[in-house]
């Protein structure tokens, strides 16, 4: 199986007024084609930095990032991104917001096909009928759905989600998890999901990567078996066990628990 995303031994430091701030140090992540990897770790450890590296927005000081067998040297249109802040453009309708990437990425789609694709995606995430609304007329969860459509509209190979559901209330968040499962079935992509919600990570991803505290390295990798889309699966003993392992790993990463055997 080839890995669509490969991050190998990446080191990165930000230059700050008080000297360099090492953020990533020996990071390895591999995501096979069609895979969906969740990345969890203490806040401020470098998760967003990781997404910026994959998107080609910054270059690593050391190590390499590969996408589809090519070394990442800069931004590429085969990436779609969504953040905690949905950053919709208030002066555009929802439909026009979703179509924004198509104005930048070279596309063979006709104008009509572009609009149809945007409408199809909006329908997929349950925003049918909101195409002509302004972002300010939508709830937080709906805006996040629209932001997801925008990230997908140009059929990216790689979808990068940086805590997309982090600012939503628990109920809305679970709704969006289910929407996400639906989207995953309908749209082929390889995904990286940054999250601080462990239940979210095992519900959505097929692999969970735990990063150490800053500077972050890959501390632990958990493979999650496919257990269907029922939210109830989060309350099985199997899930409880996985959550306990992850919670412990986070505590290790935060320096609150001693490192034990079996830690990667």
């Amino acid at each position: 199986m080839t890995n669509l995303i490969e991050i190998k031994g990446v080191r990165h430091a930000y230059q700050t007024p008080s000297g360099p701030l090492p953020v990533l140090d020996g990071l390895d992540v591999a995501v096979p084609e069609g895979g969906f990897v969740a990345v969890v770790g203490p806040s401020g450890c470098g998760k967003s930095t990781l997404t910026r590296l994959v998107a080609g927005l910054i270059k690593p000081d050391e190590g390499e990032v590969w996408l589809h067998g090519e070394k990442v040297k800069g931004p590429r249109s085969t990436v779609g991104m969504a953040f905690q802040n949905p950053v919709l453009l208030e002066w555009r309708s929802i439909l026009k917001n979703v179509m924004l990437p198509l104005e930048i990425v070279p596309t063979k789609m006709s104008r009509k096909a572009q609009e149809e694709r945007a409408r199809y995606l909006l329908g997929l995430v349950g925003l049918e009928g909101f195409e002509d609304k302004r972002p300010s007329e939508l709830s937080g969860g709906m805006r996040q759905r629209a932001s997801l459509c925008r990230a997908l509209v140009h059929k990216p190979e790689v979808l990068i989600l940086d805590e997309p559901f982090g600012a939503l209330d628990a109920f809305t968040r679970e709704d969006l998890w289910q929407t996400m499962q639906k989207v995953k079935e309908a749209e082929p992509f390889t995904g990286v999901l940054i999250t601080h919600d462990l239940r979210e990570s095992i519900y959505l991803a097929d692999q969970v990567v735990v990063l150490s505290g800053r500077p972050a390295r890959t501390q632990y990798v958990l493979d999650v078996p496919d257990r269907g889309h029922d939210i109830e699966q989060l309350y099985t003993p199997e899930s409880a066990e996985m959550l306990a392992i992850l919670r412990h790993q986070i505590e290790v990463a935060q320096g609150r628990a001693p490192v034990e055997e079996g830690v990667a």
């Binding site: 910026r52 998107a55 080609g56 927005l57 800069g74 931004p75 590429r76 249109s77 990436v79 991104m81 953040f83 950053v87 924004l100 990437p101 930048i104 990425v105 925008r150 140009h154």
Partner: peptide
């Protein structure tokens, strides 16, 4: 806002 567009080149 910048990143959304910059990531697309």
């Amino acid at each position: 806002y910048r990143d959304i567009l910059r990531a697309l080149g």
